[in-house]
């Protein structure tokens, strides 16, 4: 194994441990009402993100290519994407407590990554395309944004169920704002998902001569796209804002996860290698 990949291994493990620590800190913050733990959680999560980024860079150098071509690489990048979008939203909307809900999602996904084989394999010719790099890296951002909207919508639904004590009042934005933040996350995710589908189609056209062939992975990305389109329209036709929108965002993310893991596991298709 080359040196970069060894370093990557260490950085990856360190990042995973730190994500776990941040999850515990957030838990203390939320369940035990420890203010300081919340701040510490944010710092630890940012540190984990830095290590995680370094791990991905090492992977890329070590493998000599874009690190986005097998289950391990995609899963670890997916977790990274959620963390990236989460940190951006924490900063942009001054919403510290968001990490509390994102950390478990990140930890589960990076845990899934840890269970995958880390072997670096040479790529089959069809995968050696720069469209693939655009395709997959936009998928990371898109999935990350949907992950954040999922977390925000869960918070919304908890709020909806009457979680309205003083602690919530001071740390969680009010419902209108949550709805708006979730919408911003879905908008980001939707724009990028569209980009994923378009670049994927261009790539498929070059590699297989057909830009759309109703392969299960393609079909499910379309289903996910339609679900989020429904979300966007339901929000416009008033009355449906808030709770229903939040439920749709949750369903949408379940579709994202299914497109990502379920399709490879349960359905046959040409995407089964990625």
């Amino acid at each position: 194994m080359n040196g970069y990949l060894q370093v990557e291994n260490t950085l990856f493990t360190a990042a995973m441990v730190l994500y776990f620590v941040s999850m515990i800190l957030y838990f203390l913050f939320f369940a035990m009402r420890r203010e300081k733990a919340g701040k510490a959680g944010n710092i630890v999560m940012s540190a984990a993100f830095v290590l995680h980024t370094a791990a991905l860079v090492c992977r890329g150098i070590g493998a000599g290519r874009f690190p986005l071509t097998n289950q391990y690489e995609f899963a670890t990048s997916f977790a990274w994407g959620i963390c990236l979008v989460c940190l951006i939203f924490v900063w942009r909307f001054r919403f510290q407590a968001l990490g509390t809900f994102a950390a478990p999602v990140i930890f589960v996904i990076i845990g899934y990554a840890a269970m995958q084989s880390r072997e670096v394999k040479e790529l089959m010719p069809a995968l050696r395309s720069s469209w693939l790099a655009f395709h997959v890296s936009s998928a990371i951002i898109s999935y990350g944004a949907f992950g954040v909207s999922f977390a925000v919508s869960l918070i919304f639904l908890l709020r909806e169920r009457g979680k309205n004590n003083a602690f919530w009042e001071s740390h969680i934005p009010e419902k209108n704002r949550l709805d708006m933040i979730s919408y911003r996350a879905v908008a980001l995710g939707f724009l990028f998902l569209t980009f994923v589908i378009v670049t994927g189609a261009i790539w498929a056209e070059q590699a297989w001569g057909s830009y759309w062939s109703w392969d299960p992975k393609e079909t499910w990305s379309l289903v996910t796209w339609i679900i989020y389109a429904l979300y966007l329209h339901l929000r416009i036709s008033r009355g449906w804002r808030g709770k229903s929108a939040a439920i749709f965002a949750v369903i949408g993310f379940v579709c994202v996860i299914f497109t990502y893991i379920g399709v490879n596991t349960f359905l046959p298709g040409i995407h089964s290698y990625a």
Binding site: W214, P216, T219, W220, L222, V223, I226, I227, A229, L230, H233, L234, I236, S237, V263, L267, P268
Partner: peptide, 24 residues
């Protein structure tokens, strides 16, 4: 109307997921 759009989109999404589960 947008109502019609929503109905159509729901049917399309359902049909697509059906088509991916049933071997074609």
């Amino acid at each position: 109307s947008m109502k019609f759009a929503l109905i159509l989109l729901v049917i399309l999404a359902a049909a697509c997921s059906g088509g991916s589960f049933i071997t074609q």
